[in-house]
Amino acid sequence: MFPKVKPPLFYINAFFEEVGEVGLLLFRTLKNLFKKPWEKGIFIQQLEEVGVRSLPVVSLTAAFGGLVFGLQTYIGFHRYIGPGSETYGGPIISLGLSKELIPILVGLMVAGRVGSSMAAEIGTMRITEQIDALFSLGADPIRYLVVPRTLACFIMLPFLTVYGDIIGMAAGFFYNVYLMGVNRVIYIRNTLMYIEMWDLFSGLIKASIFGVIIAIIGCWQGLKTEGGAEGVGRATTRTVVIASILILIVNFFLSQALPADI
């Protein structure tokens, strides 16, 4: 009546097996990175898919992320430090957005939008034998499918993050200066005084790594899809869940590992 409960060792084995599969796929992707033939057409198509088509969703999340960050820093400074100190919200907003919030938001949004679509597309190719056909026609599926997607995510996520940083910081500025009447000149001066290039750059390093995570998890789930339409649905859901969780976990360790300043 009830499904048989498997012993804990089964789940431990399955976990390590999956870690091994992802590791192997990453290794094979890196190995094929510079091998010919170079799939230029697919790479450009993926740049557009990952980058250009993610702009609306990144704009919205970054704008509202910046606004809410602006709101909380305003309240925090106003309540605990006192009136006039709100101008120090500028560097806090910029630092928090560029180092943490925007790379994570961009990562999560792209995982939901692009990672799931990669899993669905490759998964459908898998169950309709298109991946076998690729092989039979002389194309290595890793070189043809995984490499251009991974490279496109690696490149485009930092660009989306820079774009998100600008939108988020502008939203924080807008909230503080135009809605709450914080002094514009001092707000900008404080921001420029405390923010460093490294703060922006460390967020971009994170974004690139998140890009690789999204592409590898999406492609991995797609390539191991089985069981028809239900399998494709499962692959897309698993991609979003696994990639999102990994992004949050890896973000913590990167925040720990990357120096606060250089």
Binding site: E121, T124, M125, T128, E129, Q130, D132, A133, L134, S136
Partner: peptide, 13 residues
Amino acid sequence: FGMLFQGTALFDS
């Protein structure tokens, strides 16, 4: 080798 697949496996994109 040339192979004709059961479901044709044409690349739909």
